[in-house]
Simulated assay, not measured.
Amino acid sequence: MKIVDIRTGSIRIPLERPFKTALRTVEQVEDIVVRVTADNGLEGYGEAAPTAVITGDTTGSILCAIHDYIRPALVGMDLEDLDGVMTKLHSCMVKNTSAKAAVDMALYDLYAKSLGRPLYKVLGGHRTHFETDLTISVNDIPTMVEDSLDAVAKGYHILKVKVGKEGLKDVERIAAIRRAVGPDVDIRVDANQGWNAKEAVRIITAMEDKGLDIQLVEQPVKAHDLAGMEKITKQVATPILADESVFSPEDAVEIIRRGAADLINIKLMKTGGIWQALKICAVAEIYQVHCMIGCMLESKLSVSAAAHLAAGKGIITLADLDGPSLCKYDPYDGGPIYEGAGIAMTDAPGVGVGGIPCDHWE
């Protein structure tokens, strides 16, 4: 089964409400879609989310990477040699992990379709359904409380609360949300690199002293500040999740070796797709460090690929795959079934997503 063509298009989907973190504010998904075609007529689809503040990738850099480097390198290769194709994908240029992720997931979609099997079963078939959290954007406290109560009313049992802009005021935010939602809702706190190490220890300790029962704190300091991450992890009781600090298997090894986090967040836009994410899973399995599967501001297309990875691998025990729930509508057909907090896999071959809303492919 040879690769005969790789094309790109674009999608735009408005969000239900602005997505606000310590790093950025976004009002709509504006992503690149990829279609890979094989000589037997089968097609696979993927998606890249330009997230310059995290990955460094822009719409222009993604398109350039795919058209000028990835497509010339892969067209003509035999997908039955999956490892060979993936090795070529990741060696044809450095970085630009989002472009690689889009092509990678399209290739895995195509590969699983050729086997007539859903991708999650090809990847291990560990589970058929799981639960995601829902993100609460950073806003004034009354708005965050209202958004949290709305999420709980919709059936979400886990909230991922964005903080990192106003130091100790974040403690007030979380305390107000905890009072509003009660003790039975899990709260995850995501600072998006918004604190320094000393500040993070002070804030997390204050949350612990108030009995706010935080499930985890995600990426409290800058991605490169592994010494700060290590200090925080050793000085607080709340589990620390490394996100922007982990792009590669090598990053995961270094985080684990230093004891700089208790958990690893895998995102396909950071790893360059499923192939490298599986290597991070293998590292995590060796050291028995549990992983979260996360996403950027992505549509159901790429989030579904991440869902297949989560369903395939047992070491992934936490999910932050709320991208489709943040969108005003779902333009696709098929794929995993999203019902409130629940994500259920189907037996459709590949990733299972069709009806790609793209009229023009380049």
Score class of each variant (00 low, 15 high):
V171S: 06
D186Y: 05
V217H: 13
A227D: 15
E208Y: 04
E172M: 06
Q219R: 09
N192D: 02
Q215A: 15
R202T: 12
V201M: 07
V189C: 02
V163Y: 00
R179I: 01
G211E: 07
K160V: 10
D186S: 11
M229E: 14
A176L: 05
K231Q: 15
Q215G: 01
E172F: 03
R173W: 02
N196T: 15
M229C: 15
V171C: 07
V181G: 08
L168Y: 06
E199A: 12
I174R: 06
G182Y: 10
G228A: 11
P220Y: 09
R179E: 11
N192H: 07
G167N: 13
Q219H: 08
K165N: 09
Q219K: 08
M207A: 08
V189F: 06
R178I: 12
E166S: 11
V171K: 05
E172A: 10
R173V: 15
E199D: 15
K231P: 00
D213L: 02
T205Q: 14
L168G: 03
A176Y: 05
R179Y: 03
I232K: 01
R173Q: 04
R178A: 12
I232H: 13
A206E: 15
G167V: 13
G182R: 13
I177Y: 14
V217I: 14
D190F: 05
I204K: 01
D184I: 01
A197L: 08
E218L: 14
Q215K: 13
I174V: 14
V181S: 04
